[in-house]
Design a protein around this nucleic acid. Structure first.
Ligand SMILES: [Zn+2]
Ligand SMILES: [Zn+2]
Length: 598
DNA sequence: CATCTAAGCTTGACCTCG
DNA sequence: ACGAGGTCAAGCTTAGAT
């Protein structure tokens, strides 16, 4: 039962210019352009029959179709159209049907909730406990309520709730001690990775890659074999899996003892810190955070009811784990203990070399921006640069650790732990860079993070992969344990497609901002705030594209279409996770808020 | 191996909504 | 009226039992 992803099919097909809005295809009153059946109207831009309309909607939503067995060249008529879904999808695409015309899941959900709300205007008490989140009920399931189907619905519902995501950031929080740029510690060489000449290949390649002077690093792939081509090196690593796994790691370094896959990212010290912070803050959020911060074992009393997350209290084993989304949102500033910092420092390796990064933005480009956008861009760049300096060691440890994970179970645990850490960093990014975030109420903040998590993960994949030695290799190994083959292939294509744009990190971060403040999130009270911010980031992105990619006039439009695409793949990312991971996810409160639902 | 059966999946006519 | 998404009976496919 081989399957082919919708994105793959679309990529194969002659792409329409997504920046323009072509005239509808086909004649009113005529036959379906796809299959020749009697047309019922214009659907997704094409005059087509109800069957093809439904088929296109279902298929795009689902994300994959059964692969064709006869070379993807089947004829389409109203009788044969059922025989080969892949060819039918190709016909739809060829006819000009546009997936952009489908509403996003957030829009659908929004619509559903809106309808539901307006259906029951009487019993709707305007005054509701701030703590009591409107229980976001999924649409009623279809009649066939089997276990498997429920499971699928569950997963898809989660993607409904949490639409987007961000992979680039992992790590140990140490916001308090922002290091001055000039005092970047010199990385200790990870000398095992030597080439035949005895020189340290890794260091050499990475330094040349990172030594981009005053330029914002451009993430790209090339076919050149020059030493400045980070990706060719990554490919090299991918081809040399064995040697990296078995030989290139020096066990004496003991990197892997530090971050076992199953260790929750936050530890006891975070709780203390959370408590300290909470004592300084006032308002309803305090209660929620307190609830979240209490240890799971004790969370039975008055807390259990007010908790919006449905983590079954009895199933959580970690004695202390405040990895709750709310708590996380409270922890705007987390301190890393000196000990931890020291320990991490000792394990610095050359996977990433922040010392080589001078600037994350092209000064000349920024100067041409209006002061408003200049401020936004500079802030993003500063954050990213400081982030790299702060977290590179932890990332190195994590990536090296991932290489070490041999069993599927270990990799799944790593993935879950990693997602938790990504979530933390994403929150840090949002809090630091996206100013309007602070204006939202805590429920909105949670909704926004949940809804953008998967998409952000996808948009940031290039940052992760291009910045870290062996990133592709590591990611592939982990993903094999967690996602379906079909999805992984799609993800790699997405990744390559992003690299082909040759955009820089600041652009990716701007995209992330746009994703985060997308106003079409379900159940948002502060929609106006988001809308304003959204408009601002979109305009900023347009302006930045103009100055940063003067040679590429279509860049802004390409990025917009990537934003559409990222929703599809982000949704697929959330949906295609292996059911084997469920138990692990359940043990990680933060991650379970994203992937599990009631 | 053939047949039966239940469960799961896909389709498309028909529905509501804005 | 139009074109989105939602619904669900009917048909088709698949996996497991006999
Ligand atoms: Zn048709
Ligand atoms: Zn075919």
């Amino acid at each position: 039962m081989s399957q082919v992803s919708v994105l793959d099919v679309f990529e194969d097909m002659p792409a329409q210019d997504s920046t323009s809005f072509p005239d509808p295809v086909g004649a009113e009153g005529g036959d379906c352009v796809v299959c020749g059946d009697k047309g019922s109207g214009f659907h997704y831009g094409v005059y087509s029959c109800g069957g093809c309309k439904g088929f296109f909607r279902r298929t795009v939503t689902k994300g994959y179709v059964k692969a064709c067995k006869s070379g993807s060249k089947c004829n389409m008529d109203m009788y044969t159209r059922r025989k080969c879904p892949e060819c039918r999808l190709r016909s739809c695409r060829a006819a000009g049907m546009r997936s952009e015309c489908l509403l996003t899941q957030a829009q659908c959900r929004s619509k559903f909730l809106y309808r539901k709300k307006s259906e029951t205007p009487k019993s709707d008490h305007p005054i509701s406990s701030p703590n009591q989140e409107v229980p976001v009920q999924p649409p009623p399931n279809q009649s066939t309520g089997t276990d498997v189907q429920q499971q699928q619905n569950l997963v898809s519902d989660i993607s409904n709730q949490s639409e987007t995501c961000s992979l680039g950031e992992v790590s140990v929080p140490s916001t308090s001690s922002t290091q001055p740029f000039e005092t970047v510690p010199e990385p200790v060489s990870f000398s095992q990775l030597n080439d035949s000449n005895g020189t340290n290949l890794v260091d050499e390649i990475i330094s040349s890659f990172m030594d981009f002077g005053s330029e914002n690093p451009v993430l790209t792939r090339t076919d050149s074999t020059g030493s400045d081509d980070m990706l060719s090196f990554l490919a090299l690593l991918a081809n040399e899996t064995q040697s990296i796994d078995e030989n290139d790691l020096d066990p004496s370094i003991g990197l892997f003892d530090e971050v076992p896959a199953t260790t929750p990212i936050q530890s006891n010290s975070s709780i203390e810190h959370a408590e300290n912070l909470l004592s300084l803050q006032r308002g309803e959020a305090n209660l929620q955070a307190t609830v979240s911060a209490s240890t799971n074992g004790q969370a039975s009393e008055e807390n259990s009811e007010s908790s919006t997350s449905d983590t079954p209290t009895e199933s959580v084993n970690q004695a202390t784990n405040p990895c709750d989304l709310k708590t996380n949102l409270q922890l705007s500033q987390k301190h890393q203990s000196a000990d931890e910092d020291k320990a991490t420092k000792e394990h610095t390796c050359s996977l990433f070399r922040p010392g080589k990064i001078q600037k994350f933005v092209r000064p000349d480009a920024v100067q041409n921006l209006s002061p408003e956008y200049q401020a936004i861009v500079s802030e993003i760049a500063t954050f990213r640069k400081s982030w790299c300096e702060k977290h590179h060691k932890t990332l190195c440890v994590l990536i090296k650790g991932s290489i070490q994970d041999n069993s599927k179970k270990e990799r799944q645990a790593r993935f879950v732990a990693y997602m938790g850490s990504v979530m933390e960093k994403m929150v840090e990014f949002i809090r630091t860079v996206v100013h309007c975030f602070q204006d939202l109420c805590i429920e909105d903040q949670i909704a926004v993070v949940k809804a953008s998590f998967f998409d952000c993960c996808m948009i940031k994949v290039p940052i992760l992969l291009a910045n870290f030695n062996g990133g592709v290799h590591v990611l592939k190994r982990i993903l094999q344990a967690v996602h379906t083959e079909v999805f992984n292939a799609t993800l790699m294509k997405w990744y390559e497609g992003m690299l082909d744009l040759k955009i820089d990190m600041t652009t990716l971060d701007l995209l992330q901002c746009v994703i985060v403040v997308s106003p079409d999130r379900p159940n948002i009270k502060g929609r106006d705030t988001l809308e304003q911010s959204y408009a601002q980031y979109i305009e900023c992105l347009r302006a930045y594209c103009k100055v940063a990619y003067p040679e590429s006039h279509l860049m802004f439009h390409r990025l917009l279409s990537k934003l559409t695409e990222v929703r599809t793949i982000g949704t697929a990312f959330g949906r295609s996770i292996s059911s084997e991971c469920e138990s692990i996810i359940r043990e990680h409160p933060l991650v379970s808020e994203i992937w599990n639902r009631d």
